[in-house]
Design a protein around this nucleic acid. Sequence first.
RNA 1: GGAGAGAUGGCAGAGCGGUCGAUUGCGGCAGUCUUGAAAACUGUUGACUGUAAUAGGUCCGGGGGUUCGAAUCCCUCUCUCUCCGCCA
Length: 423
Amino acid sequence: MLPIQLFRQEKELVLAGLKKKNFKEIELVDKIVLLDEQRRALQVENDKLAAVLNTAAKNIGIHMSKGEKQEADTLKEMVTLHKEQAKDIAQRLSAMETEAQDMIIRLPNLPHSSVPFGKTPEENEIVRAGGTMPELGAHNMPHWELAVKYGLIDFELGNKITGSGFPVFMGQGSKLQRALIQYFLNFNIDAGFKEYSPAFMVNEASAYGTGQLPDKEGQMYHVTEDNLFLIPTAEVPVTNIYRDTITPEQELPIKMTAYSPCFRREAGSYGKDVRGLNRVHQFDKVEIVQIAHPAKSYEMLEEMVVHVEKLLQSLELPYRILRLCGGDMSFTSSLTYDFEVYSAAQERWLEVSSVSNFENFQANRMKIRFRDGNGKTQMAHTLNGSSLALPRIMACLLENNQKAEGIHIPFALQAYFGKNMIN
RNA sequence: GGAGAGAUGGCAGAGCGGUCGAUUGCGGCAGUCUUGAAAACUGUUGACUGUAAUAGGUCCGGGGGUUCGAAUCCCUCUCUCUCCGCCA
């Protein structure tokens, strides 16, 4: 949620940002500014009346204690006279607040100045690429065939037990999964991130805080009986650790990491994009989250990008880093880098990580603040990224490393997996 | 799931219809003393909103009600604790 002060002070900036983000309902901005002015005027009126009534109530108390019943009754009459008016103003005020809130909540975050203009994924900017493209023989297989060949994943079994998009891992597939999680977590911990094991369900307030509600409600699994949501990413519970807190400035940045399964309904997906592990309803991911000082957040973002890049390099996978254009960025983000790895058998790039700076967009909703050197509270910036999402990493590992004798395990993973080959 | 108790400022904990945004202790900050630190002593210390600046307004778990006036009374929701039940 954008802070209201921004509309008062930097309206042009807001308009330009929304345009870059390819946001359609630009007219909302003027409505918000106007409503805010009206609201404040009414607020002053409300406060003045409240002041009069407060004083009167206080004086009644004093008169009563002195036994001056006459004076007290006169004041009571006066207050009663104004009561309806006060109630009316309060009601109008609250209606205006709700209306303004409903409009502001519909506006996406503003993009950073480095975000490229554009509307479609084709207009994303390739920042850099790394790793070497594998050369596979003509008889190469996509991961869903390799998974069957080596008995790693059973998609059919998942259909039977739960439904499509809930694959069952087994044997060496399970072990590789576990090895990846362990490796990613340790890699993050070594870089100074504190590990958390959060709950995999969150309440409404948390889902609202990170921006899943009200917008993306349909993307989450909802346990209606208890009104809880299965988390679509560990970002939700982990960022919410700091909801409604004021942190001393010197404790920033706060760096957190967590493993969690992620649950996504992925309503509306279909076709070859969703084949095998490309898109599933439940998958594992290790997430990193930071609460940062506003002056340092972009520095931290670059640091996170380098961190994830090193992780991909250690897995010996060909990758590229994209800076997303305004139209392809998420609702809540100011700047997002996507990481893609090359799936050799499918001959396409698969997104495995998304690293973003949300500036104070989430912090404003969640009231994540810090106390600066002058003792004033300020909104912090929040950032997060995947390091990493497992399914597509596994897909690429299987496909890119397939040999006649088995599937090669990259060196960094061997200690965790226990051997250097799946066969 | 049943019965009972509770939710107050960073923490602990008073207040139970009027001058309470809230006694006190701890913690934090500043100072005195000290070469420095500790101890002791003194002072200070909530958030939000709002104004040109003062002022004003709101907040005692959330929401609603009674009253001239609510942290205090009533209703409701959420959460916590104790006991019982169930159970990995």
